[in-house]
Every structure is written in structure tokens, then in C-alpha cells.
Simulated assay, not measured.
Amino acid sequence: MNAFAGTSAYYRRFRPGIPVALAALLDQAAPTGSPRRLLDIGSCPGLVVRALLPYFDDLFAVDAEPGMLTEAEAMLRPALDAAHRLQLRHALAEDFLPPEGWQPHLVTCGRVFHWLNQPRFLDQLNEYLAPDGVVAIFSDRSLWTVGTPWQQAAREVVQDFLGEQRKAGDGVFSAPGPSYEEVLRASAFSHVTSAVVPVRRQWKISQVLGYLYSTSFAAPHLFGDRRDAFELAVTNALAPFAVSGVLAEDNAFTVLTAHRASAHEGR
């Protein structure tokens, strides 16, 4: 089973999108073009595409989970105007090839790079990315890895119900390999720039539950007939931390942008 099977509706409703500052950074990192082309890998319900609509007019969203593409269609189509062209494709990132002659100026991998066969994906990407194109890899910290007391309390409830080891759908989350920067520098996209974009969020407890159901480590089907008990346990664990019903979170997106060394030399 896909690690995100059954999570797509929750992902669309409860996962935070990318901040305006990150969208602007990606716009500045990518070359111009007409049409200006964006390829979003692991698009999920299209959160990254939606944030980049002001900057790109020829858009391709790729995801391995059909339910995510259904949500992306519902989210993105109403936001498009006549100047935009959107294509969606059900495919693994490592297998995807765009239509002949279609070369993206920016390829985004938001919260997805861990799930890929990274060297294979980057080798494939080298075949079709525009000569001066940019690949951007970015993610914020998940509830599993951040350390505020209320987030630790929520993670402990998940562990009480599903076990100490982090789940990935019906499987187990694998240990990280080399750093993303190392992987990029070993690929054709060896010129790498890094940045950090801070973000502050406020959550209601119901939104935290929705967020948990959008993840691979707390996907709804993992709880079986214990979902009601899980929701009550999360609510009881988080209530002492809420101030006027609100839980505060300070997070940050780590962003790597990379392009071919030859493209850098030509700038």
C-alpha cells in the first residue's frame, strides 16, 4: 500500500502550504521563460503549485497516489485562468518523463525527496530539465521531529497506539541516508545553494488531528476501530497546552536549490 493511501483529503485540508517568502525565493532562483514551466514532483493536493501560480503559467503536477491527484484537480482548476496550463500525471518520480520538448525551468520537491530513489530521479531529471533549469528540494519539520512540548505529547499518543517505531503507512520509516546536499553535489546538479525560511503557525486541536491523519505515520487506516479512542487521547493530551484553544508552533523550511555547474558558469 502506498504510504499515503487514504490521507489525501486530510492532506488538502490540514497540511500547511508553503509561505509567501518561500514561493518568492523559488521564483528568484528559477530562470525566466515564456511560457515559464514548473514541474512539481510529489505534488500531493497541489499546495506548492498553488503557491507558485503567480510566477509560472505552464504547470505539471506528478504524484504516485491517485487520490492526491484528485484533490489537486479539485484545488487547482478553480484557481486557474486562461493564462495557465495545468497537466497532472500519475507516476513515480523516477519513471516520469514529460512530453517531448517540454523542459521545466523549475522542478520542486516539497516534503517528498526522502521517498525517492534520489540518484535515479536526479539522473532522469538531467535528461529533461531546461539547460539553465533549477531543482528545489525543501521541507519543514514534521510533528514527529519537532520538539515543542505539545508536539511531543501528540507524538507520544501516536506511539502509544501504533508503537515506538515511526510508521510509513503499513511499513516502517527508513533511516535517512546521506544528506540531500551530498546527494545533489554527487549528481549533475552540483551547484547547490541553501536557505532557511522560518514560519510561525497556530493550530486548533481539531486541526492537529487532521494533520496527523495526513501523514504516513498516523494514516487513518492504521488505527482501525480505535480511531475514536485515538482522537480522544490526542484531545486530552493537548488540551493542557492550548492557550485560548490555540497551540503555537515555530517551524522552518530548509531549502536547497541546485543546477548544473555548466549553467552556473554561463551566468
Score class of each variant (00 low, 15 high):
residue 30 A to S: 09
residue 119 P to I: 04
residue 153 A to V: 11
residue 207 Q to L: 02
residue 136 A to Q: 13
residue 8 S to V: 12
residue 191 H to N: 07
residue 223 F to D: 12
residue 42 G to E: 01
residue 230 F to G: 06
residue 31 P to A: 05
residue 133 G to S: 06
residue 163 G to M: 00
residue 75 M to F: 00
residue 5 A to W: 01
residue 50 R to H: 08
residue 37 R to I: 14
residue 222 L to V: 09
residue 257 T to S: 13
residue 245 G to E: 01
residue 120 R to L: 14
residue 243 V to W: 10
residue 131 P to D: 12
residue 68 M to E: 08
residue 131 P to H: 10
residue 136 A to C: 10
residue 239 A to D: 14
residue 113 F to N: 07
residue 142 S to Q: 08
residue 13 R to W: 02
residue 52 L to V: 06
residue 132 D to Y: 11
residue 64 A to Y: 01
residue 252 A to P: 01
residue 184 L to A: 03
residue 136 A to G: 11
residue 6 G to C: 02
residue 170 D to H: 05
residue 244 S to R: 14
residue 188 A to S: 10
residue 123 D to S: 09
residue 21 A to N: 07
residue 266 G to D: 15
residue 100 E to Q: 13
residue 38 L to E: 09
residue 169 G to E: 04
residue 4 F to E: 06
residue 6 G to Q: 01
residue 61 A to C: 05
residue 8 S to F: 13
residue 107 V to N: 08
residue 220 P to M: 12
residue 185 R to Q: 09
residue 138 F to S: 01
residue 108 T to A: 10
residue 123 D to Q: 15
residue 195 A to S: 15
residue 248 A to E: 15
residue 263 A to I: 05
residue 148 T to C: 13
residue 173 F to D: 11
residue 253 F to T: 08
residue 225 D to L: 10
residue 62 V to I: 15
residue 138 F to L: 00
residue 241 F to P: 11
residue 131 P to V: 01
residue 108 T to F: 11
residue 258 A to C: 04
residue 3 A to G: 06
residue 44 C to Y: 00
residue 262 S to D: 08
residue 133 G to Y: 15
residue 2 N to C: 01
residue 98 P to D: 09
residue 44 C to W: 01
residue 167 K to I: 02
residue 239 A to N: 15
residue 262 S to H: 01
residue 74 A to D: 08
residue 215 T to V: 05
residue 154 A to R: 08
residue 37 R to P: 01
residue 203 W to C: 07
residue 236 N to A: 14
residue 240 P to S: 04
residue 80 L to Q: 11
residue 107 V to E: 02
residue 250 D to W: 02
residue 203 W to V: 06
residue 165 Q to A: 15
residue 251 N to P: 03
residue 224 G to Y: 04
residue 178 P to D: 14
residue 236 N to P: 12
residue 182 E to P: 01
residue 206 S to E: 14
residue 160 D to T: 14
residue 262 S to P: 01
residue 134 V to R: 07
residue 20 V to Q: 14
residue 252 A to Y: 08
residue 25 L to S: 08
residue 245 G to F: 07
residue 69 L to E: 07
residue 35 P to F: 05
residue 229 A to D: 05
residue 45 P to D: 08
residue 154 A to C: 13
residue 150 W to S: 07
residue 143 L to D: 00
residue 252 A to H: 11
residue 104 P to Q: 08
residue 84 H to L: 13
residue 34 S to I: 03
residue 210 G to H: 02
residue 205 I to C: 07
residue 149 P to G: 03
residue 237 A to G: 06
residue 162 L to I: 04
residue 6 G to M: 00
residue 222 L to D: 13
residue 51 A to M: 07
residue 75 M to E: 13
residue 41 I to E: 02
residue 149 P to H: 07
